[in-house]
Amino acid sequence: MGRKLTVNGAVHDVDVAGDTPLLWVLRDTLGLTGTKYGCGIMACGACTVLVDGAATRTCALPLDAIGEQQQVTTIEGLAGTSRDPVQKAWAELSVAQCGYCQSGMIMSVVALLAEHPDPSDAQIAAGVTNLCRCGTYQQVRRAIRRAAEATRDA
């Protein structure tokens, strides 16, 4: 029953039922707990990862929907503390409060900035629909701007 799954550049053999959501494969099978469970209906975005660079919610996405050639990137696969421009901006502005939604938020922003290096307010609003119950959105917007500037200046 095993199949291959590429996560953060590493190829894993996973032996779980193909209808298992990718989120739970990442968390319970591969031990990558940075990606979070929030709702189970892909409504909140806490489970967001990149699949071939596209922000993708995974809590109800069956493993079978991911091709063996596709590249999954989780929060653990970004460059690491303070090196990725989005993570760096997040830390500099102390965006996180409880922090639980922020992995998914950051992955959405990485995808947003890849598509729109200088996003408009409307593009930010359309591209970042992750829910944050603490309500960090003002700092999120600031951090997106800072990360965009850092990326352009780099």
Binding site: L32, T33, G34, I75, E76, L78, S82, A91
Partner: peptide
């Protein structure tokens, strides 16, 4: 700020 920006904070 770091552990809550890189996925390593343990909830």
């Amino acid at each position: 700020r770091h552990t809550k920006s890189d996925g390593s904070a343990v909830f």
